[in-house]
């Protein structure tokens, strides 16, 4: 088992909390894990990504080779396409459809979505709306995790357990809100 995952988004969107839940579940499964993050200047509203590698064999490189990623998980549609050269030919894109427009030359949104729709192995989810519907507008990232949970090579129930462990210290209410967001994400990708 080997999954090379690129997590993408804009600084401040919270891609690292997705990585934390996947990492937690992978560790419990006894898998090897490497996760390269971006800290510093680019976190200020710029494009950010994290390379997350999980595998049943030891992992050498912290970075995923071009053409090697099994999955791009993105909280922003344009950012999902930024890492296209890293995606393997059979790789998947799971992305939020809601653009984060903080630059004057943001591309035409229809073109962007139609490029994504024209690709095979692509799951488009309006995670912001689903998060709001579940009463947890800040849970977009967990909705997105739910939407790609069947592609991660780990039993989806393991992520629920991961969410419980990670959010436990914040109280039962927060745990349940995030489980709800996760399940809503799962259903959206069906």
């Amino acid at each position: 088992m080997k999954k090379d995952i690129i997590l993408a988004g804009v600084g401040g969107q919270g891609i690292l909390s997705i990585a934390t839940v996947i990492g937690e579940a992978a560790l419990k499964e006894g898998l090897f894990i490497k996760q390269a993050e971006v800290h510093g200047m680019s976190q200020r509203g710029g494009d950010v990504q994290s390379n997350l590698r999980i595998s049943s064999e030891a992992i050498a490189s912290d970075l995923i080779p071009k053409g090697g990623a099994d999955l791009i998980i993105s909280l922003e549609p344009m950012e999902s396409l930024r890492y296209l050269p890293y995606l393997s030919k059979d790789g998947w894109i799971v992305t939020n459809t809601v653009p984060f427009v903080n630059i004057p030359n943001y591309p035409d949104q229809e073109k962007l979505i139609s490029e994504l729709k024209g690709r095979k192995n692509t799951i488009l989810v309006d995670v912001d709306t689903i998060a709001k519907e579940t009463g947890n507008p800040r849970g977009s990232n967990i909705v997105l995790l739910g939407a790609c949970s069947h592609l991660l090579g780990i039993e989806p129930t393991k992520f629920e357990e991961g969410i419980r462990r990670i959010f436990a210290r914040k109280g039962e209410e927060i745990v349940e809100m995030n489980i709800k967001a996760f399940k809503a994400g799962q259903n959206s990708a069906l």
Binding site: G45, G67, M78, R82, L87, K89, I103
Partner: peptide, 27 residues
């Protein structure tokens, strides 16, 4: 490193034309 070892690059997708730079900015 792969190229330096004389190995063939993995097959990749072309970069998307719908992507523009998103530089960091003051909050």
């Amino acid at each position: 490193v792969r190229i330096a070892l004389g190995m063939k690059a993995l097959e990749t997708f072309q970069a998307s034309e719908n992507v523009v730079p998103r530089p960091p900015a003051l909050c």
